[in-house]
Computed example of a mutant assay.
Amino acid sequence: MRINSTVLLTLVLLFLMLGAGSVSAFLGFTFGSSALKGVTTPDGRPTSKFASSKTNPQSGAVAFLKEEDILKVVKSRIDGKTKAAKSDETNEDDEDINGKKQKPEEKPPQVVEEKLQPGFPVAAENEGVTLSVQSARYSGGDLLLKVKMQNKGADSVRFLYSFLDVTDDKGRTLSASTEGLPADLPANGPAFTGTVSIPTALLDDVKKISLALTDYPDQKLKLEVSNIPVGR
Results as ranks from 00 to 15, higher is better:
residue 1 M to H: 07
residue 3 I to G: 06
residue 5 S to R: 09
residue 6 T to Y: 02
residue 9 L to I: 12
residue 10 T to M: 10
residue 12 V to N: 05
residue 12 V to W: 05
residue 19 G to S: 13
residue 20 A to Y: 12
residue 24 S to F: 14
residue 25 A to C: 05
residue 28 G to E: 13
residue 29 F to M: 12
residue 31 F to Y: 11
residue 32 G to W: 14
residue 34 S to D: 10
residue 39 V to G: 04
residue 41 T to C: 04
residue 43 D to T: 10
residue 45 R to V: 15
residue 45 R to P: 03
residue 50 F to W: 11
residue 57 P to N: 08
residue 61 A to F: 10
residue 62 V to P: 09
residue 66 K to R: 09
residue 67 E to G: 02
residue 68 E to K: 12
residue 77 R to I: 10
residue 81 K to I: 15
residue 87 S to K: 07
residue 87 S to W: 10
residue 89 E to V: 12
residue 94 D to F: 15
residue 98 N to K: 14
residue 99 G to V: 04
residue 109 P to I: 09
residue 109 P to Q: 08
residue 112 V to I: 15
residue 113 E to N: 04
residue 117 Q to R: 00
residue 119 G to N: 00
residue 127 E to F: 08
residue 131 L to H: 01
residue 133 V to E: 01
residue 135 S to I: 00
residue 138 Y to A: 01
residue 148 K to Q: 01
residue 152 K to Y: 08
residue 153 G to T: 07
residue 163 F to M: 06
residue 166 V to C: 03
residue 167 T to Q: 07
residue 168 D to S: 03
residue 173 T to K: 13
residue 178 T to F: 02
residue 181 L to N: 02
residue 185 L to F: 08
residue 185 L to M: 07
residue 188 N to P: 02
residue 190 P to Y: 06
residue 191 A to K: 06
residue 192 F to P: 01
residue 194 G to M: 03
residue 197 S to Q: 07
residue 204 D to Y: 11
residue 206 V to M: 03
residue 210 S to H: 02
residue 213 L to A: 08
residue 217 P to E: 15
residue 217 P to L: 09
residue 218 D to T: 15
residue 218 D to Q: 12
residue 224 E to T: 15
residue 226 S to Y: 02
residue 231 G to K: 06
residue 232 R to Q: 11
